[in-house]
């Protein structure tokens, strides 16, 4: 990754050109389907399909329509470079992407500018937003809970932002031996999909550890779906096996 920063050339504005170069090279990396983030790009269709179909059936939309998610407000927590936010915005949703990393937010903003996707990006965190009383129709929590310091506090904060009649989807990796073997050992050491140390076994989260705070906050668990990688077709598919990757869907009563 290029880290050498050139001295900014003064062009009359306060914008630092070397900063922009830095972010745009990062953006290119995030959005290059054949680059470092390829595993995430390959994983994207299966989770987007799940999100779209679930939202369409919950809010009574036709998934084949143009911009089927029009008018639905979505919060994507831990949005990274915006790989999920942009497609959701193109499907018509009003999307807010949030990431604790200022760099990620800059990268996501820059890419959205180039692609013309309308997404509101903010460098903040779930706890602050919940404290400010922000509410959304849908709160997405994709591949984040296994990285936070306190799952209980984090999941509760996210749940509080779901409007009555709204949904939340939490996607993560289960804390099982199978996950240790596949999601950590295989993915990080054998297939090298992810940098070593991306996931720590102790920080993986069991479904009941997510269901607990959601239910305490008055949400109903609708279903838990597994997502499994098929090495023969080289694709991700939904499955009943929730031992490794899974997504939990919960709703708040209207």
């Amino acid at each position: 990754m290029p880290s050498a920063r050139r001295k900014p050339i003064y062009d009359g504005s306060t914008v630092d050109q070397s900063e922009i170069d830095h972010f745009s090279s990062l953006a290119q990396e995030w959005w290059n389907p054949d680059g470092k983030f390829k595993p995430l790009h390959k994983f994207n269709p299966v989770r987007l399909t799940y999100i779209r179909d679930t939202l369409c059936s919950h809010f009574g939309r036709d998934p084949k329509a143009v911009r089927p998610l029009s008018g639905i407000t979505i919060l994507d927590i831990g949005c990274g470079g915006g790989l999920l936010c942009e497609p959701l915005a193109k499907m018509g949703a009003t999307v807010t992407g949030v990431d604790a990393s200022e760099t990620n937010i800059e990268v996501a903003r820059l890419h959205a500018e180039q692609s013309g996707a309308e997404v509101e990006y903010r460098a903040t965190n779930a706890e602050t937003m919940a404290a400010n009383g922000e509410k959304f129709d849908v709160v997405l929590n994709m591949e984040v809970v296994e990285h936070v310091a306190d799952v209980d506090v984090f999941v509760t904060a996210c749940a509080k932002m779901v409007k009555p009649g709204g949904l939340t989807i939490v996607a993560t990796i289960n804390r099982t031996f199978k996950a240790k073997a596949l999601a950590i050992f295989m993915a990080e050491n054998v297939l090298r999909w992810l940098p070593r140390g991306t996931h720590q076994f102790e920080k993986l989260v069991k479904p009941e550890e997510i269901a607990g705070p959601l239910e305490t906050d008055g949400m109903d668990i609708i279903e838990t779906t597994g997502v499994f990688y098929n090495p023969i077709s080289d694709s991700w598919n939904r499955s009943n096996d929730t031992d490794v990757n899974y997504m939990m869907l919960a709703s708040r009563p209207a």
Partner: peptide
Amino acid sequence: ADRLGLDIGSSI
């Protein structure tokens, strides 16, 4: 791919 808001020309 288009219905998922994805890039129709991407290698994925």
